[in-house]
Design a protein around this nucleic acid. Structure first.
Length: 479
RNA sequence: GGCGGCAUAGCCAAGUGGCUAAGGCAGCGGUCUGCAAAACCGUUAUUCUCCGGUUCAAAUCCGGAUGCCGCCUCCA
């Protein structure tokens, strides 16, 4: 069985064959550290987190590189506004980014290089491009000459003439062609600068990625990823720089994730329709956000809304309720499970099948939506008639698959407790008050005062508190 | 203006040539329960935006229409 990857470059699914036996190198464009990350960044991070987890699950040794852009116009602007240096700004938002990613359960990459740590490499690359006649200097700036690179546009499926015909290109008479882009910019007064053969200056945005991926992964590596919006011009320019300099293919497979939308529009800083990761994590468990995002295929757009998250929360509760049930069964606390039962064979087959079908789904260019459906389908398979041992095995299989998707990482009891407390707080309910009423109702029930008991339950139900009478205790959750 | 993507039930969403079109949420009926909840059983698209075409066979391929979105400027 082979893994199929949709390659943006060829616009079709291709069989994945790593360059080096048993190893995979993957580079993903990270963030520009000038503000808090929003749900769009979360999607990209989670998608590539799951991709690397799956590649590892499949047995490859993965080197995962994700960079930080820590010098850029926006960082400079922000530093100026806050009257501080760019490294303070970058440092702050890299830290915040890491906090958010940790909270989301996104594994740290193997390497997380920063642009400013690679200035020497960038200068060397620009020098090579100048020597090869692919770049030219103008007043301390160095531009890449897109016309000198024959393959320009091959990733995004454009050609220079067509784009020129479409107009809407910026006016800059320093450039020979409007699509030429800055490799190196002369620093103006008050801007950060580095010493270079062309005077004091700073790197253009695309340059860092060419340098950092090459440094960690070599001239040619397996997978290059990022958000859909990076296809043009960022990745196109990276190809021009890297392939122009080395004469070798930069990345063999290009993976681009689709956008998060809000009311059918792209979530973005400039539109102002974004939600930061931490805003969302105040309202929902990280795995709810994860489930929500992974329920769609990574290339499809996904519409973000509170209703959609709330729905994902229901799904997550269902999973964790089942995991709790399985755990209780393992602990021997539930009478339902027997030691051997007639449906064992069926369930075992189902579990074996689940692993296989999970792999099939993920092999089909990381179809997490299909994978999640499999979990749901398995959930629906009858528990009665299956023995304790097999149910315990089922729980383990779920956790195994969950570990690839980054789900079910928490103890079920703890998850459910946190969920109801979070939801109670969101609705302005007091946990202590709820529990007091439950105690009162229990007393009423013991005395068979059904009317009072129902009054309390209905009163709580109106506020969204659903009670569940168990054999020895009453538990509650928020609808 | 150029290039590209998407359209499947009340909502979300998989399926990209052939068994009865997955799954979730919501809804409805039932078992269970003091009443509930959970769980379980059953049920909810003769049909995939529309119109043509190819084929023995299409949600799936081709052409056209409509609608929505993205990239072309910083963007995950």
């Amino acid at each position: 069985m082979t893994l199929k990857i949709y390659n943006s470059r060829s616009r079709q699914k291709e069989e994945f064959q790593p360059l080096r036996e048993g190893k995979v190198g993957i580079y993903v464009c990270g963030i520009t550290a000038y503000d808090l990350c929003h749900v769009g960044h979360a999607r990209s991070a989670i998608v590539f987190d799951v991709i690397t987890r799956y590649l590892r699950y499949r047995g490859w040794e993965v080197t995962y590189v994700k960079n930080f852009t820590d010098v850029d116009d926006k960082i400079i602007d922000r530093a100026r506004r806050e009257n501080t240096g760019i490294s303070e700004i970058a440092e702050r938002y890299i830290r915040e980014h890491d906090n958010d990613m940790d909270a989301l359960g996104v594994a740290r990459p193997t390497f997380a290089p920063r642009a400013t740590e690679n200035i020497d490499g960038m200068i060397r690359l620009v020098t090579t491009l100048l020597e090869k006649g692919l770049a030219y200097p103008v007043e301390g700036d160095i531009y890449y000459s897109v016309e000198r690179f024959p393959g320009y546009g091959k990733l995004s499926g454009r050609n220079i003439e067509e784009m020129l015909a479409g107009a809407r290109v910026d006016v800059n008479d320093k450039k020979r062609n409007p699509f030429d882009f800055a490799l190196w910019k002369a620093s103006r007064e008050g801007e950060p600068w580095w010493e270079s053969p062309w005077g004091h200056g700073r790197p253009g945005w695309h340059l860092e990625c060419s340098v950092m991926c090459r440094r960690h992964l070599g001239d040619t590596f397996d997978i290059h990823g990022g958000g859909e919006d990076l296809v043009f011009p960022h990745h196109e320019n990276e190809i021009a720089q890297s392939e122009g300099a080395t004469g070798k293919t930069l990345a063999r497979y290009w993976i681009h994730n689709g956008f998060v939308r809000v009311n059918s529009e792209k979530m973005s800083k400039s539109l102002g329709n974004f939600f930061t990761i931490r805003d969302i994590l105040r309202q929902y468990h990280p795995e709810v956000l994860r489930l929500f995002l992974l329920q769609s295929h990574y290339r499809s757009p996904v519409d973000f809304s509170d209703a959609a998250l709330s729905e994902a929360r229901q799904g997550m509760n269902r999973f964790y309720s089942t995991l709790k049930l399985l755990k209780d069964i393992e602990a021997g606390g539930t009478e339902a499970a027997t030691e051997a039962a007639e449906k064992d064979g069926e369930m075992k087959a189902q579990l074996l099948n689940l692993r296989e079908r999970f792999r099939e789904a993920m092999d089909d260019y990381f179809n997490t939506a299909r994978a999640i459906r499999l979990l749901n389908t398995t959930l629906a398979e009858k528990k009665p008639g299956v023995s304790r041992g097999v149910l315990v095995e089922a729980g383990k299989t779920f956790l195994e698959i969950g570990s690839v998707l980054g789900l079910f990482r928490q103890e079920a009891d703890e998850y459910l407790r946190q969920d109801r407390e979070r939801e109670a707080v969101k609705r302005g309910l007091s946990v202590a008050e709820i529990e007091r009423l439950i105690a009162e109702r229990r007393a009423a029930r013991a005395a068979k005062m059904w009317q009072r008991a129902d009054e309390i339950r209905n009163g709580l139900a109106v506020q969204g508190v659903i009670l569940r009478d168990g054999p020895d205790a009453t538990t509650w959750r928020i609808s």
